[in-house]
């Protein structure tokens, strides 16, 4: 009954950077449809007069003094890198060949 379509799922896959196969899209479309039907009921009670709660324990103005603390060495920064040039992380081309 919801608006979940294979195209929407594919679009969500692009937004979330997950390369979904066609079977995954089909399966997820059905599953999400059922889930969304069940969870959409939140809007029944979420009337305009009810404020939203983003943090369960209300607090404010939690700040850190502007003082440099021990941070990471370059070796620590890179220790889990799939690829690096010794001081920077290396990734494959960001854009494809020029068209």
């Amino acid at each position: 009954m919801s608006e979940i379509t294979p195209d929407l799922v594919r679009h969500l896959g692009v937004l979330a950077r997950i390369q979904l196969s066609d079977e995954e899209v089909t399966r997820l479309t059905g599953e999400l449809d059922a889930i969304v039907d069940n969870i959409a009921k939140v809007s029944q009670v979420a009337t305009p007069d009810v404020p939203a709660t983003s943090h369960p324990i209300p607090m404010e103005n939690v700040f850190r003094p502007d003082e440099v603390a021990v941070t990471l060495t370059t070796a620590q920064a890179l220790q889990n890198a799939p690829d690096a040039d010794g001081s920077r992380f290396r990734v494959t081309a960001i854009l494809g060949e020029e068209q």
Binding site: A77, R88, F89, R90, T92, E97
Partner: peptide, 21 residues
């Protein structure tokens, strides 16, 4: 980001990129 390789070293056609955070 620093783009490396390719004809111009620009983002278009670069072979890879290096990231400094």
């Amino acid at each position: 980001l620093t783009h490396v390789g390719g004809a111009t070293g620009r983002i278009q056609g670069a072979e890879y990129s290096l990231v400094d955070y």
